[in-house]
Simulated scan of single mutants.
Amino acid sequence: CQQIVTLTYPHIGSYGVNEEDVEATKVHAAGLIIKDLPVRRSNFRASLSLDDYLKREGTVAIAGIDTRRLTRVLRTTGAQNGCIATFAAGHVLTPADTAAAIARAQAAPDMAGQDLAQVVTVNQPYPWDETEWVLGSGYGRLAAADARFHVVAYDFGVKRNILRMLASRGCRVTVVPAKTPAADVLALQPDGIFLSNGPGDPQPCDYAIAAAATLILSG
């Protein structure tokens, strides 16, 4: 969310995209940087190429970048502002184009202090019972009779497969918005509480910190 993602593995897109394995309702990343985009996908579950998927999602991406070198820079200097610029076919890059891209990158807001959990979280609580994918049968459903535990999952940017893994282990899951008060969660009488990962800086998420403290003290 509001961040460009880079991947160090050189070939991205070899397997294409499988709609069943999408981890969120939409692509939240602002852009994607990769080394090489294969011209063909090869996987029996693939329904789209990575290129077509990103176009459908309206997500800009760039290939041909030395992502391992970029990763070393980021590892040493920390996250940096960046800009992916697009031009019409046949356009010859000019110094003015480069200067404009640099200016846009420099004008981007710093990630420090940004509460992006509220951007990606859900608006309303919802139940989750889908289990992990199994070859030959696909995804399953946790039967009510097989649910041994009730877990409340805070959505700060949760990945669907984490929820599937909980369901596969006998957990009936209730997903709640990031700003759900601890009292509302405790009222559900859960056996466990899961705090998901998410984008941005955790420091401004004072509501999450307060809820976590209350839940821990509740025993």
Rank of each mutant, 00 (worst) to 15 (best):
V5P: 01
V5L: 08
T6C: 10
L7M: 10
L7T: 10
T8D: 13
Y9C: 12
I12E: 10
N18C: 12
E20K: 11
V22C: 10
V22R: 14
V22D: 06
T25V: 10
V27W: 03
A29K: 07
A30H: 11
A30N: 12
P38N: 03
R41F: 02
R41N: 06
S42M: 14
R45L: 11
A46Y: 04
S47K: 14
S47H: 12
S49I: 04
Y53M: 07
G58R: 05
A63I: 00
I65C: 09
D66S: 00
R68F: 03
R69M: 11
R69A: 13
L70E: 03
N81D: 13
A88Q: 11
A88F: 01
V92T: 14
P95D: 00
D97C: 04
A103D: 02
R104T: 14
A105D: 05
A105T: 00
Q106V: 08
A108C: 05
A108S: 12
A108H: 00
M111L: 13
M111D: 12
Q114G: 00
V120F: 09
V122R: 09
V122P: 09
N123E: 15
Q124P: 07
Q124W: 02
P127H: 08
E130D: 07
T131P: 01
T131R: 01
E132F: 11
W133F: 12
S137N: 14
R141D: 10
A147P: 05
H150W: 03
V151C: 10
V152L: 01
Y154M: 05
F156R: 02
G157V: 04
V158L: 05
K159N: 13
I162P: 07
L163I: 04
M165A: 15
S168D: 06
R169G: 14
G170A: 08
C171D: 03
V173Q: 00
V175H: 00
K179G: 09
K179L: 12
T180E: 01
T180K: 04
A182P: 02
A183D: 13
D184Y: 04
V185M: 01
A187W: 03
L188N: 03
P190N: 02
P190S: 02
I193T: 08
I193V: 15
I193M: 07
I193R: 00
F194E: 08
N197Q: 12
D201Y: 04
P204K: 04
D206R: 15
D206L: 12
Y207E: 09
A208H: 03
I209A: 15
I209C: 11
I209L: 15
T214S: 09
T214I: 08
L215Q: 00
